[in-house]
């Protein structure tokens, strides 16, 4: 009875941590009234997860798959300069904020804003706490890059808690990992965008699972893009039985087609399932051997 109460309390706390804080989203509240001479050009556009399709064209599913709750877009204006759009995504938790940021490959230089950030093509992206933030200037010109940075810094400064990346990240072997290609997901639809598994349904993924896909450099090769190296898929299931079922299905999927090599290698310990794709047997074995399963095996 006592253990049941603990479980119920855990569920309640988990739900509280996913809900928007009282008084509205702390991410939305972090939008500044002014930075670098830029002020709001009009009222914010605020949408929930269902309204996201109207705000962004083509990518709403990514953020919906990562449990986005509220998104606010504020257009900043300064006379004689291009407008700047700041979009704040309240992802409900820092793991999903990490996921939203890392959905794209992150190869650009850091801006030193938030927990992780990237300057790319004049834009600034970062995550901090439960917030993923995009700052996009609508033109180029003198002072624009500085204003983009100032707006980002102002948002980041107003987000109090830094948050933490997904706990699974600590289980990824560091050696050979391509830092720009670590992606977080819950369901198969998002995973299917990140790696070609034909049909990822066999993994039994859903909103209640979480996983990371990480690319590694080929063993012994110089280390540029890492695209041709192995990929490690790490998935934690909420129940042991689901992990076992996924292991069985994955083992069948990994079988070679024709005379080729196996499509993947796998290992499961408890509720944690790991697959290595795009690797020779020995390379896969070594990579699996470096995963500290014992630290993440509990559902």
């Amino acid at each position: 009875m006592r253990s049941l109460a603990v479980v119920c309390l855990g569920i309640i706390l988990a739900e509280v941590s996913m809900a928007a804080p009282p008084g509205g989203s702390s991410c939305v509240a972090a939008l500044p009234a002014e930075a670098a001479g830029y002020r709001p050009a009009g009222p914010d556009e605020v949408v929930d997860r269902d309204g996201l399709f109207s705000l962004i064209d083509g990518g709403a599913e990514v953020y919906r798959a990562l449990h986005v709750q509220v998104v606010a877009e504020r257009r900043y204006r300064k006379p004689g300069a291009p407008d700047i759009l700041v979009d704040v995504f309240d992802m409900g938790g820092s793991a999903d904020a990490f996921g939203a940021y890392h959905h794209d490959m992150r190869e650009g230089p850091s801006a030193g804003v938030g927990v992780e950030s990237e300057r790319q093509g004049g834009n600034l992206f970062f995550w901090k706490g439960r917030c993923y933030v995009s700052v996009v200037p609508l033109g180029v010109g003198p002072g624009v890059a500085e204003a983009v940075l100032a707006l980002g810094q102002a948002v980041a400064a107003a987000i109090r808690e830094p948050g933490a990346p997904p706990a699974l990240l600590a289980l990824l072997p560091a050696q050979g990992r391509v830092a720009s290609q670590v992606h977080y997901f819950h369901d198969g639809a998002l995973l299917g965008r990140l790696v070609d598994l034909d049909e990822p349904g066999f993994l039994g993924l859903g909103d209640d699972t979480e996983g990371l896909l990480a690319r590694y450099r080929p063993t012994g090769a110089p280390a540029p893009a890492g695209a041709e190296g192995p990929a490690l898929l790490l998935i934690r299931y909420p129940a042991l039985a689901r992990a076992q079922a996924a292991e069985q299905a994955a083992a069948a999927w990994c079988q070679p087609r024709g005379e080729g090599r196996p499509r993947c290698a796998l290992r499961r310990v408890g509720a944690l399932l790991a697959l290595v794709l795009n690797a020779a047997s020995e390379e896969a074995r070594l990579l699996l051997g470096r995963v500290p399963f014992e630290r993440g095996a509990r559902p």
Binding site: D57, G59, P82, Q120, N123, F125, V136, P137
Partner: peptide, 13 residues
């Protein structure tokens, strides 16, 4: 010719 982020837009691209 290139894009990233939720809007997949950059004036520089």
């Amino acid at each position: 010719f290139h894009g990233k982020g939720p809007h997949h837009y950059s004036a520089e691209y």
